[in-house]
Design a protein around this nucleic acid. Structure first.
Lengths: 109, 109
DNA sequence: TGCCTTCTCAACCACACGGTTATACATTAC
DNA sequence: GTAATGTATAACCGTGTGGTTGAGAAGGCA
């Protein structure tokens, strides 16, 4: 791991926090199989349009997605597929944690 | 990636958000080379005792650290070393993003 | 020009969360 | 027993943030 001094910790945390939002994760998931317009994403995740736009802005500023304009529509796509490896790692940790907790619930069989 | 339905997205986001805090990242970093007591961590990260305790509680509840009591002192340790792989991935993404942004700043040399 | 669509932006509200303070609890020493 | 040490917990406060609403910009089309 990169040395996490105080400055780095803030930057890294900022990125983790960006992924720490269900709606944003669903947007990334929706973008997984290709480019989507804002309107498409609004339909897919079932949220307000301004809300989706704001989340996409943040994902864009953090470099998780890229943007392309075509007429009046804005098309977003995944910038770095490693995001999904992050999700996989987190899911793996979640499974292990649940297994551990389950194990502790029955100490002596 | 595991299918991120609405329920999953909330759980995964919860874990990302737990890592999205500079102080908690510094606690994890401090625990990297072994078990530490709460008092040790208070000295290392330079924060209030109640604050450190609260952050450790959350890290514990999320399964990132494990706890062991010895007399009156509580000893914490990393539960899943994969946390650091997560940090590495995030740092890598950060570097790539910065490179990309730097590239865009000088379009035609 | 005028209207519609698509998206962004600003303002607002409610709530969650990080930090601090003070207090309670548990263990050890005396 | 009391005192001291090491943690956890509760209460509070200020700030940050997700969601909504409404207005505004930018293009497409009759």
């Amino acid at each position: 791991m990169i040395q996490l001094n105080d400055a780095n910790a803030t930057l890294v945390a900022e990125r983790f926090r960006t992924l720490g939002e269900p709606m944003r994760l669903r947007l990334l998931q929706a973008l997984r199989d290709g480019e989507r317009s804002v309107g498409d994403l609004v339909d897919e995740v079932g949220a307000g349009q301004a809300n989706v736009s704001k989340h996409l802005q943040l994902l864009h500023r953090m470099g998780f997605v890229q943007r392309r304009k075509e007429g009046t529509t804005a098309l977003y796509r995944i910038a770095d597929p490693n995001v999904f490896r992050l999700c996989d790692l987190v899911c793996g940790g979640m499974r292990d944690d649940l297994d551990e907790k389950r194990r502790l619930l029955r100490p002596a069989r």
